[in-house]
Design a protein around this nucleic acid. Structure first.
Lengths: 357, 357
DNA sequence: ACAGCTATTGCATGCGCATGCAAAACCGAT
DNA sequence: ATCGGTTTTGCATGCGCATGCAATAGCTGT
């Protein structure tokens, strides 16, 4: 088999020559809305076709100073919730011809230091999820007009937009739900100590229960990892006076919690202990897991994030935005169910008790 | 708060002016190994620093026709194994200053059609995992000298390199393991019908058992999805003559299988039924799951893939390569254990029985 | 001090595409 | 056939950086 020497890719000039027009005509043929006669346009497209021409996006980006690339900074990819976020984001961006430049960072660390140089890639926007921007990055982006949106993380930095689930409300409603279920001792497995998101959930959870005179809530950190959550749960179940209701700040940690409770301690869930998660990842709804959880729809978060990005790209002087996406408490099989307040909606059992509060 | 109008980013010329040198000097200052006096280099770096200069990678890429971007085409991101692959790849690439341009495709579909235009981005290489390249893409890449490596998928297409776990051997060893464990009726939950990888595992599995006169192996497809696997297992457990040993072509599907067996059918795993997975994702090793599985180390796969890429980039005329990464049968708690052949290695129980075969 | 080198610099150009501007082609109406 | 107006084209230039080549500066030995 003959191996063709790697050839230079055809350029607009090549196409132009073949089609008997100028390079700029070719450029226009590929620019939506540009002024080209339909007939020559066809001729050019034909020529491009036979040459196998593909526009060089680097060159285009250099000329237009827009890349159609969005940077995605992410951590905790092993958490299926974030896998969902990536999928959703990728899908929605593809719909507008954009793509994702991926920056991962190991759990626990701050955003990938390489992210500091993300602007070198002339990205149109930056989406961060499960990580937060550094001040320096925020300033750089502000200066150069590149929007940053954080999904599922708050920020006090200037110029950073955020989209998140309703953390406070979720914490309270889960507390109310478990309280109504008549539990006696409550625990919370949070994420990273410095995750605003997780903290908000925990604070609201404990706040509700404290206000009702429940015994102090056991607050722990699972660091959003499987092992971290397992460890935390192992700890609280080993001691005396073990909790009979645990709220985990993510489904992923709840899975670990359930596994530890069942397989290491031989507990019945939800007979001996109730466990509630947060996110409603797809697995959570399957009978294999059947996790009671508070939903935070990834696709809705992503949708909002993209809306924000597009507004900000259109008018970079606009202020940063904050959005909250609603969720609800999905009643399934890992937590004891209160007598009242269960409503069926779209085939899912939802808790509506104590809604007024 | 005053909002600075989005400013043009500083360029090499700006730095040059400030440092009192020519633009090319600045360029050289940022090019490793270029000829610049150390003192002026410092002066330039200083100037760059104060200006907040960052090289424009699009321009650099245009000039050098190399982008330091690797395209990653992926599917089934919800499978934690692939999350691992992404993480590993991202880490290893970052070590050499490269980044990932992400192309996802929905489960079941072929690679993202947008991938056909991936060459527009002047990527240095393409990594595909859980998907396979189209012929057209393969030819395009061959023509333009862009290496393609598929992780965990075989290919018969020209110019495509592959890296995979030892599918055949795994299938046989798992069969031998379960056979030695004295099971009576075997089943296989494969992936997508057209996944060469999954087929190889299943064929080797069934082949081994057939050769020993075991009853015909129940062959099903889980399509590599959680629901697909659950469905398949549900089917085989509902019928008469239910299997007492299931090999799932991925851990992710094994989790679904275990859930269905335990929670829908009230079966004891491994008392009533043995379930073995494939991949050894991190969760599999945790007591919460404790899955018996055959390992396929994501980091090793990625490492090989990158080696191949680098060789191919260095010399694009080189032939496509195929690599197989070894794994082993990790004996944990979801399958009945044969009397003999268990060896402890690095804190893991490994099966070494019938090794000769 | 000067020839002979070498290490540094700057100049000029090109990478592939987009786009403002002027030239050319076209069209219908007179 | 001619004119005014509208499309359609091509020309020229720039985006920011890399690099071959020639010019310059710096250095060694005599």
């Amino acid at each position: 088999m003959k191996r063709a020497a790697p050839r230079r890719a055809p350029t607009e000039s090549d196409v132009a020559e073949l089609a008997g027009v100028s390079q700029s005509a070719v450029s226009r043929a590929f620019t939506p809305g540009a002024s080209v006669a339909e007939t020559t346009r066809m001729r050019i497209l034909d020529a491009a076709q036979t040459l196998g021409y593909q526009p060089n996006l680097m060159a285009r980006s250099l000329a237009t100073s827009r890349s159609n690339i969005v940077a995605l900074a992410i951590s905790y990819l092993e958490n299926p919730f974030y896998a969902q976020v990536v999928n959703a984001l990728s899908d929605r961006l593809r719909a507008t011809g954009r793509h994702i430049l991926l920056f991962t960072s190991p759990p626990g660390e701050d955003a990938d230091p390489a992210l500091e140089r993300v602007l070198s890639y002339q990205v149109d926007a930056i989406v961060m999820t499960a990580t937060t921007a550094s001040l320096e990055l925020a300033l750089q982006c502000q200066k150069s007009g590149v929007p940053i949106v954080q999904i599922n993380r708050d920020s006090t930095l200037p110029g950073i937009s955020t989209v998140r689930g309703e953390n406070r409300r979720a914490g309270e409603r889960i507390a109310a739900f478990l309280y109504a279920g008549g539990h006696r001792r409550y625990a919370f497995v949070g994420g990273a100590p410095d995750s605003t998101t997780g903290r908000a959930r925990g604070a609201a959870f404990a706040g509700y229960l404290d206000a009702r005179g429940a015994p102090p809530v056991v607050m722990t950190h699972g660091h959003y990892t499987f092992d971290g959550a397992a460890q935390a749960v192992r700890g609280m179940l080993s001691g005396p006076d073990r909790p009979d209701a645990i709220f985990c700040a993510s489904d992923y940690m709840a899975f670990a919690a359930i596994g530890v409770a069942r397989r290491e301690f031989g507990l019945d869930v939800p007979g001996d202990i109730s466990i509630v998660g947060f996110d409603d990842v797809p697995e959570a709804g399957r009978t294999a897991y059947d996790l009671t959880t508070y939903s935070q729809p990834a696709s809705a978060l992503v949708e909002e994030a993209i809306k924000i990005i597009d507004l900000l790209i259109e008018d970079p002087t606009r202020r940063a935005m904050r959005r909250e996406v609603r969720g609800q408490l999905l009643v399934r099989g890992t937590a004891r169910v209160p007598k009242d307040g269960i409503v069926v909606e779209n085939d899912e059992r939802v808790w509506r008790g104590a809604e007024a509060e």
